[in-house]
Amino acid sequence: MNSVKDYTYDELILSTLGRQLKDRDRVFIGVASPVQMMAVLLAKATHAPNLLYFTILGTINPSPHRLPFSTGDPHLFDCCENAITFPEIFDLANNGLMDVAFLSGVQIDQFGSLNMSVIGEDYDQPKVRLPGGAGGPIMIRSFRRIIAWRPNHSLRNLVNQVPFITSPGWISSAKGTRHGGPDVIVTNLCVFSFDRRDRNIHLKSIHPGADVDIIKEQTRFPFQIPRRIDSTPLPTQEEKEALTNFVDPQRIRKLLLKPPT
């Protein structure tokens, strides 16, 4: 791959998210996920042309002329190949027919459990009422792979143990329970992944500009650090061009992915 030196933050994040996807993956884009949708369109325009993606409106493979801010924008009906409804996407996942979903948590912990519910001790009168976990609690199990995008990597977001588990990660549970959890967590500093065998969290790659010390400083939980740490691969010329010419000519990515200050 001919990666480039002159790339921007938004290109790096979209390229990193997009490369988590494989050709022929069946991917679901949920609520409030325009960044994830851009990453899917980027993957589809580059290394994963046969990827099939479903949005929360039920649209299949929409290719919008102008990217919407909301994944609920009805313009997606106008440019899709086909459509079902979102309950049927969950049904498909239960039957093992869906591969990837993007999920996130306002807080994420070392097990990959996601909190989208409340911050504070008292559930009934919380310090912060969060928006809710959408389909997460079941999707985190019913999809084969979960990708979590967590901007604003900080001690507040990446916690030792979430106070409320909306969607359970790789936690041990009663016998017979199927496990589930994220495969990767992409932040603005690095990529974490969960070991396929022991499901411990480890640092997979570091974005340019960050280093292990910064990441440790900004992360509440312990994580495994491999002997040789990879640097997150830079965007390629092909990816840059796909973003500019095809995925997002209006450059809304600049609004949604502002470089951390």
């Binding site: 609520v31 801010f69 909301s70 609920g72 989208m116 009934d124 912060v128 949604l256």
Partner: peptide, 24 residues
Amino acid sequence: YFLGFMTEQGFASMQRFRTAAETG
């Protein structure tokens, strides 16, 4: 199960709902 949506200004959190939920 989810209240909020994305806008040009970023994530629109539902603030009257939030306050009502936080104060019980």
